[in-house]
Design a protein around this nucleic acid. Sequence first.
DNA 1: TGACAGAATTGGAACGTTCCAAATATCTAA
DNA 2: TTAGATATTTGGAACGTTCCAATTCTGTCA
Lengths: 348, 348
Amino acid sequence: MTKARVTVIDIAKAAGVSKSTVSLVLQGSSLVNEGTRAKVNAVMRELGYVYNRGAANLRQASAKSRIIGVVVNDLTNSFFAELAVGVDMVVQSAGFVQFLSNTSESIDRQREVVASMREHGISGLIVSPARATDAADFKPLVAAGIPVVVVVRNLPGAKVSSVVSDNQAGMMSAVKHLADLGHKRIAFLGGFPDTAVFDDRLAGYRSGMEAGGLDYHQELVISSAPSRAGGGEAIGKALVLADKATAAVCFNDAVAFGVCDGLRARRLEPGSDFAVVGFDDVIEAQAAVPALTTVSVDPQGIGRRGAQLLLKQINAGKAEAETVTTAVRLVVRESCGARKSVKIETGL
Amino acid sequence: MTKARVTVIDIAKAAGVSKSTVSLVLQGSSLVNEGTRAKVNAVMRELGYVYNRGAANLRQASAKSRIIGVVVNDLTNSFFAELAVGVDMVVQSAGFVQFLSNTSESIDRQREVVASMREHGISGLIVSPARATDAADFKPLVAAGIPVVVVVRNLPGAKVSSVVSDNQAGMMSAVKHLADLGHKRIAFLGGFPDTAVFDDRLAGYRSGMEAGGLDYHQELVISSAPSRAGGGEAIGKALVLADKATAAVCFNDAVAFGVCDGLRARRLEPGSDFAVVGFDDVIEAQAAVPALTTVSVDPQGIGRRGAQLLLKQINAGKAEAETVTTAVRLVVRESCGARKSVKIETGL
DNA sequence: TGACAGAATTGGAACGTTCCAAATATCTAA
DNA sequence: TTAGATATTTGGAACGTTCCAATTCTGTCA
């Protein structure tokens, strides 16, 4: 039942031309006569020919495989799902397909996944590196002429392009907003200090404090896992300080949700009793109670930008490392206390 | 700078054996001497050899490409993101990689994407078909011996395996629950009537009404787009009936959210003034206000089951169509009015 | 008519692997 | 010491494409 594959030679025979001509047709060459082209195409349709990219890639450079690899840390997180969608949009319309894989923050898995993609001959790679990824890990790829674009988290030292959001400006505007509301003791909660993103956001926090005319105090910076649980821990520490914090900017939305949990467990209402601001604007931020004030980063946009950058490099044939930071904006909702909780929004 | 690819022949030369031996090592054959194997492996590491799957696939059947295609309708929807993660888990640990693509419910795009995947030589396909997909669309694939597993929505008439959740039982238990709470006028809101999923859920609604000792009334079934906006429309119609509905089961959670919006716009509070139950248990359902009572379907589990089924068929070498329905369960939260709104949950 | 240019076509030789049949090396028992 | 196993290794010949150089076809012009 499983018929033998129909190949370019079968087509040639049936159309009464040579395989070379068929190949020319396949590539849309202008060398071939209109009449023959039509005939060949007809025969192809008739015999149900399917192009064998594998065979083609054997001859051509791998740059023509039209596969681009995408590796993210956690597809369950809607942030990364959106990112992948953004990538898919531009990649797909350029006639590429995407290999998508999940690392779950595991460096080993990341290595495996990338190796596997390489074996399959990807023409480019977009990666949101797992925590503590070694900048040298992507060296072999670039050496082999495969463009790599790092997104979301940058990889200092690696000579690859990157697309990251403006963490510093975002955090700064968040802090500034709280200062404008009259807060003096503003904490920075959550996140692991060994990441580039943490550094950027912390820097934003410092300049925000400065811009608001406030002093920077070491004890107001409390790191923790960048998760809901981590947020709970962090707020616990922030509330036992001698001079208590009255507001907090959080490393990300997950931390912010954890902070809200922790506040409630201590009979404090987020928003009215203590102001909290998140970062990322994940999809749940809007629906939460109170709705989370947060810095919106447009992951889909990052995906699109990253993909465009990658395609550009693939087409150029050489990878000129380039860094783009995408704009962010503060979305003021309820958790910072700036607005009363008003429900009844028009649906959609 | 871009050095020529290092091939199996280079390895052979450097290790002082023949390319055939190297190939044997690559495949982990037991025919080759331990010593030689070690030496060859050492040389491979030293020269930075990367396996060329494309070349290999040329010789072997495409069943060995170790690529499996995954196509979903909307990765932005966390339901499908979870599904993809489930697939990735089993697929990855079996040494396969996944091609993931988004169709956005477009049949044309689906066709393109599947064609492209086929050109790349996938060894199997998992697809959540776009609306109104023709059952015959996957015929060529199966004819070529490529196993296909349909998930989430089944494709009556297509002779392929499928993994769907037990829509009927789920909707039935939802209706039964509302009936037990004393509701008599229970509406069925949202969804497009031309889909298999709609039929199943509607059937569940009917049997739930019956089980609750209630009559089925045509006017209580109001279809609409399966989206938040659609939910708003549907509830609007449900509230102008002569004999008003007091509760509704919704086609999915998105519709349910829209229904809640619509209720509030009319100064009715979901939960206390009107009971609403969703379907899917998307991630936002828990965090919403009021928390949504819904039927939980475990998309990740569907993904895993689907992938397992597919791998089984790939290994078996032939596709025996098989249907599995996965269990669902009603998660009672606040929107059905069964519980008071109690917050303060322990954060994770 | 012949020479020539341009347009269209074509036969191999790659590409990097696997597979087969056959060759060689090593061991065992008489 | 040798026949017969058994264990290892090995040259091609595929696989389905693209690319190159070379060929054949068409017309045009002197």
